[in-house]
């Protein structure tokens, strides 16, 4: 799975597209781990281009959240489509992962 990244005010914003499921979740995690730097103040997954995330994908988000918490790096997701937001709500992930409306919101909150 392809990811694009940019850094704004010390916050790493990661864009991904398509689906995150059991077939690509491990690769998704690896490609994110490869780009996150210890200097980042915060990491945001921009899900504007993601239309589906399975429980395997949620697990990747949980792993990332744990890793970043240990490094005391801020973490959140933004620009969720309504179906992905629904998955976050049902699973209760909205209670443990910061959700932002837009990348700009996320950056201003995590910088």
């Amino acid at each position: 799975m392809e990811i694009n990244t940019e850094r704004t005010d010390g916050v790493l914003v990661i864009n991904a597209e398509g689906r995150i499921d059991g077939s690509n979740s491990a690769q998704f995690l690896e490609s994110i781990q490869a780009v996150v730097s210890d200097d980042d103040n915060g990491v945001v997954l921009d899900f504007g281009g993601i239309n589906y995330i399975s429980s395997a994908g949620l697990r990747v988000i949980l792993l990332l959240a744990k890793e970043l918490r240990q490094k005391q790096t801020g973490f959140g997701v933004c620009s969720l489509s309504s179906s992905v937001k629904e998955i976050f709500t049902i699973s209760g992930f909205d209670q443990i992962i910061a959700i932002f409306d837009s990348g700009a919101d996320a950056v201003s909150s995590l910088k």
């Binding site: 209760g92 992930f93 443990i96």
Partner: peptide
């Protein structure tokens, strides 16, 4: 009724 997936948050 709320409630998050099990195995994530101690004391949820």
């Amino acid at each position: 009724v709320g409630g998050i997936a099990l195995g994530i948050l101690q004391g949820a």
